Structures are given as C-alpha cells and as structure tokens.
Amino acid sequence: MIEKELPLFPLNLVAYPGEELNLHIFEPRYRQLITECVNNNTTFGVPSYVLSKIEYGTEVRIVKLEKTYDDGRMDVRTVGMGIFKVLDFVSPWPGKLYAGGTVEMIKADHDGDVVLQEELFKLANDLFEWLGMEGLVKFDQKMLTYAIAHKIGLSKEQEYELLKTTSEKKRQEFLINYLKLTIPIVKQMEQAKDRIRQNGHFKHLDALDF
C-alpha cells in the first residue's frame, strides 16, 4: 500500500472517487489550505467525519478556483480521486492553520458483475419511477456504484460503509440489498398517498354481491 502525507479537510459527508465536489471555503485555515494547493498544484484529503471519528476519506484535486470574494472566501470545484485510511491525524499540522497527516491509499476494485449490474440499474430505475422522478437521473450501464450511491437516498452512514468497501461486486450487492428493502416501503407510501388523496371524494363503487 502507498502512504503519503496530505493536508486534511474533514467534512460531515462522503465523497467518492470520480465525484465532483463543490466547496464554499470561508474559514481562514481552509482558505490557507486551498490557496496552497492551488499555488503548488497539490491535492488534499477529505476525511468523512460521519461516525464521529477520523478514519476513511477521499483524496481530491482542485479542478477550478471558481471565485474568490473580497473578504477571502472562495468557491472551489474539486473531483474525488482515491480512497484512503488515515494513519495519523495532526491538528493543526506543524506550521499550518489546517490539519494534516499520513494516509494509506486503499486500492479499490472497479470490476463488477454484469448480471448484478443489470439488476442494480433495473432496481434504481424502479425506485425513480415510484418516486415519480423518472428521467431526472439517467442511469448508464457503465456507471460504477460510486456514481449511483448519492442518487438513491442512502444515509451518510450507509454511504460511508460503501466507501470502505473495496470490491465493486460487494458494492453492487450492498446497493441491490438496499433497494430491495427501500422500494417496497416507497411503494407502500405512494399507495398510501393515493388513498389519502381519495379520502373525502365521491366514489363510484360497485356493490358487492353477497
């Protein structure tokens, strides 16, 4: 495994490899971090502070410094690269306002199962149909699980669990199991909403023949 030192920007979210993450930077320590990364063309790490601990996160690179405000605030576009495990977290990093530390880069497998992939996309589309949101998200057969995870309503804890899962096949199974549990609940809620809408309206009912 590869170890490296990274500036660290803990956030209460999960960023995945390949995901675009837009940040509004206002704290002086993180303005310093972003400025140095832009000037030196270096990356930084976003540990996911989801379970009240600093453990796993994603290395990100800055794509564009979108805007700098007169008071020093910044809007910055980043994209996720690889996943890491934090070996040593130091706050503040010596000589800096921000935190940093040593991380171990985690090799993640991106070769999933074709059959599971088809099932996953079918279930994801089913979910969006029941939510009345079909067409809002286009699911592509080439999409990795990382690209689907933020679109189907996972909790932050579930997103974090997926981040720690290094096998694409296991990530496919994780999302399939989630959707199989979620879709019946969504279906039941949508049917309940229909019944509630009908309540109080005049109904044409066929008499039952006893």
Rank of each mutant, 00 (worst) to 15 (best):
E134F: 07
M143I: 07
F89C: 07
R197I: 13
L120I: 07
L163C: 00
L179S: 11
L131I: 05
L97Y: 07
P184L: 03
S155A: 12
V38C: 05
L51N: 15
H24A: 11
L163H: 05
Q32L: 04
E129V: 15
E157W: 00
F210A: 02
Q191T: 07
I83N: 13
F202R: 09
Y16R: 13
P94D: 13
P92I: 08
K107N: 14
T78W: 09
K53M: 13
V137A: 04
I83Y: 10
H24D: 12
S48L: 10
D71K: 06
Q158H: 04
F139M: 11
F128I: 07
D75Q: 02
L205S: 13
H24V: 09
A124S: 15
P28V: 00
P17C: 04
F174H: 08
K142D: 09
M105A: 07
P17I: 06
R171T: 02
G80Y: 01
L33S: 09
K4L: 13
E118G: 14
R29V: 02
D71M: 06
T166W: 08
L97A: 07
L23F: 00
K187P: 05
R197E: 10
V38R: 06
K122W: 04
D194N: 13
P17E: 06
L51S: 08
E27S: 01
D126G: 11
K180V: 02
V14S: 12
